[in-house]
Write a protein that binds this DNA or RNA. Structure first.
Lengths: 220, 220
DNA sequence: TTGTTTTTTTGACATGCATCAAGGAATTTT
DNA sequence: AAAATTCCTTGATGCATGTCAAAAAAACAA
């Protein structure tokens, strides 16, 4: 929740939260085609969102963690456009969108906050487009890891160690790579002494090297 | 502008438009880093939006035409995150975002409209991610052409003929392909009798074939 | 018109990642 | 604990697209 609320406003914002909902690992918070009613604030847990093409190919469009808002894809057509799957047991706050809109009309700070959240998602997707359109496998994985630790660190976790909540295949889907390529790239980073990997556990040894790869200052 | 306004509301919405601005072909409506003040409704002309990475690679993130709104990328950080370049002489309505927000608080229909526009952009970018992450060159170009004619047709133009406002390189940047690949794929579609191409002019001969390629019902 | 620049097309060749395959490690189920 | 399943790693090979190059066509400028 944003800063800039006084106590009274804060209470009103709290009242928008209709209830909480628990989602078990592997279950869906919502599916493509579901009627859109609410946005969801992730309290705990980790989600992926993904879209599927007609012939069954799946594209992971994002990974979301505690404190992030999902469901905005549903506003435009009153039904959801992607699936939101819990990658670990999770709990979300259900925020009926009609209430969010109503209160937004009363509280300009909330209104602005909602707009920023949606704008942030647009900007994030822009940078994923850059990643998918222009970067090579190593750059993509470096960008992915740096983004992940940065977000985890903002939540008080380590800057250098993380436990992936998703499979190589899901990482690959997000990055536009096959799972074998993801695995090989992890191994290469490990061989180069940039990271330590043991399955889902990753430790970043040389963050600068990762950043250089990301900015593709390739040293031939 | 959306339906659902009465005359009085319509007038208020009109008043949000501060002024109009003309942008010559090749000039920028806004640049990455510019202070964010306004959204822009395209009245006439055609734009591309693009982001650049530190090492200078450019990714076209979208092509926008009359009736579409650009600038929402700027909300989150109060400065723009991409460049908006006119691909032909254009005219836009400048809508100061503070006024949009103010009036949105008064008019729920406008509020909902603003939310839908942002949600639509999120959903569009999701499908671009699918395109960049999962599709092959022919599928990408087919999707691109179908999307373009569909939008042009919605504006009263032909369902089957169009004049591209962008170069092969810009198409390639949007689709995550090199310009040579775009050119070759155009030639292949032409050889297969699916389209006619003469430089920027494209005529769709067999829309069903394009749709099949897009859905990748490949007939080996 | 003529010259210059930009854009497009096409060919030859290179390469990064995908595909196919197999085995090993970890996790879940029985 | 054993069996089954899922996930991960690694090797061999292939292919779609990138790269390099050159020329043609179109657009623009002088």
């Amino acid at each position: 929740m944003p800063v800039g609320f006084n106590a009274d406003e804060m209470q009103k914002v709290d009242e928008v939260v209709e209830k909480r909902r628990r989602i078990k690992q592997g279950e869906r918070l919502f599916s493509s085609g579901d009627a859109f009613t609410s946005l969801y604030a992730i309290r705990t847990g980790f989600f992926k969102t993904c879209v599927a093409s007609e012939d069954g190919r799946e594209q992971v469009t994002g990974f979301q963690m505690a404190g992030e808002i999902i469901g905005m894809d549903g506003i435009v057509a009153d039904h959801h456009n992607c699936n939101a799957v819990a990658l670990e047991d999770a709990e979300v706050c259900v925020m009926p969108f009609a209430s969010v809109e109503e209160l937004s009309r009363e509280l300009p700070v909330l209104q602005r906050h909602v707009h920023k959240i949606m704008s942030r998602e647009i900007v994030r997707e822009n940078s994923v487009m850059m990643l998918l359109g222009n970067m090579r496998a190593e750059e993509r994985l470096a960008a992915f890891l740096l983004n992940l630790v940065q977000r985890l660190h903002a939540r008080g976790l380590s800057q250098s160690e993380l436990v992936l909540r998703m499979t190589r295949e899901e990482i690959g889907s997000y990055l536009g790579l096959k799972l074998e390529t993801v695995s090989r790239t992890f191994s290469k980073f490990s061989d180069d002494g940039i990271i330590e990997v043991k399955q889902r556990y990753v430790k970043i040894i040389d963050a600068d090297a990762l950043k250089k790869i990301f900015n593709s200052q390739i040293a031939y």
